[in-house]
Amino acid sequence: MFHRYAALSSPRHFYAVAGAWLPWLSVLTVLGFAAGLYWGLVVAPPDYQQGEAYRIIYVHVPSAWLSLMAYTVMAGAGLVALVWHVKLAEIAVYECAVLGAWFTALALATGMLWGKPMWGTWWQWGDARLLSELILLFLYIGVLGLHNAIADPRKAARVASVLALAGIVNIPIIHYSVEWWNTLHQGATVTRFDKPAAHSSMLWPLLFMGGMFILYFSTVLLARIRVRVLEQEADRQWAEEVRNG
């Protein structure tokens, strides 16, 4: 069993196996998104308070989930990269950071687009979730900036991994401190709106979209690591055979 995983972590095998899986995963992701969008935009009933505006939830909340999940995966890959020096994990750290930063940016942008009609303002300092998300974006930018500043990709990945691990320790603390700060300054906040009550006809499409975002993340992460592997192993014979063949 272990040998199979060990073989998979060799860049060459990974390239081949990921290449075989990717077409299926891509088709599944596209179909899943089509179904999820139909469910969320058409089938799910409008919210009794927010009307149709609440439908932003079906992209906002999954983006926010994935922004955290990508960070967790990145830190996990960072640990593997630091302890076992696995090349695939080193590549995964950077690619997770790129995807995670984009999910974070999307969660922020859609959150603001949701906030404008609900709060009457694009940005609400009183909303702990948006604030945490903004800090998370800066954490991602730090990892990306550090990685980009170091020329050697293997060293860059390990340095970025240390920062990613420091970040993962900090994320719960930051989240808690933001909530704590928020309760302290409650008086200053304008009307807060709560996310719609979890009625099952709205909750199921949300969970489904969350699942599709995870599928998307896995598929694209796999594709991105696969290309990086080919780039970084350009000197090896197998990579040459792949490019010529």
Partner: peptide, 8 residues
Amino acid sequence: YVWSAYAL
């Protein structure tokens, strides 16, 4: 709001 969120 809805369509710009989905478009983004």
